[in-house]
Amino acid sequence: MTRSERREAVAGWLLVLPAAALLAAFTHYPTVATLWRSLHGQALHGKPPSFVALANYRAMVKDPVFWQALRNNAVYSAAVIPLSMALSIVMALAVDAATGARIRGRTFLRVAYFTPTILPMIAIANIWLYFFTPGYGLIDRLLAPFGFGNWNWLGAASTALPAMIVVAVWREAAFYMIFYLAALQTIPPTLREAATLEGASRFTFFRRVIWPLLTPTTLFVFVNVVIDSFRLIDQIVVMTHGGPDNGTTILLYYIYEVGFQYWDSGYAAALTAVLLAGLAVVALAQFLLLGRRVHYG
């Protein structure tokens, strides 16, 4: 190493230091602390929690609510991930086509699609609570002519989770549409014209040009939608409190309940550890499997 190289190396480390320190203080340390905490019992009457080794994990295996939360989360993720991604692409294509056609009010169209992202969760909850209201809510009124019309969407075990999925898809698709739209607008219009002249149908053009060119965006959106699907909580807190009968309790909501309503922070830490481990596996798999098939412009 020459002197200037050494100086550069030192400078490099110094530049990385603030970010690394913050990351360590607010991400790595809490993670380790959580793992450590999950090996302890409940803190009662001001006494420090006792070391219980894997007792929390053994209890978890026998906890039916945990398994239900896991199942609910699996159903929720399996529905929300593909649906919101598909919808965000479709909406982005629609807005992009509208932009290309120079139709009047395309700004309005974009804003309309993006609205769910700007609205605070409480407002969203209010809108959807109204939609779902039995009897006079929007959905029941739309269904009334078909002989339905007095259904407690959020109160019935069979429809509460699907209702949560619908709201989540609506929010997610609106947000990720913006990323797809941005990506679509970097694709030169001459590519479409060239393909049209070559006799490619709209579908062929989508499949052979648009979709491959969107791959980096799709990977990014996929990773984020997956993470989002395990991080959902506000909507549940505001709209169903995990009910009816734990029907909409998904993993993070259960952790919140255990940690902040039953105050069993040891068990909550153990649940968190499981969630983190799951997310880590998912993230790793995504980058290993998808990383190679991405076309970066």
Binding site: P188, E198, R208
Partner: peptide, 28 residues
Amino acid sequence: PAARGVAMVFQSYALFPHLNVGENILFG
């Protein structure tokens, strides 16, 4: 356009960036 029997070379070339040369040429 596709039924008119015309080919076009664009000023910007309009090559598909994710396809190799052979695939670009054979796209149509």
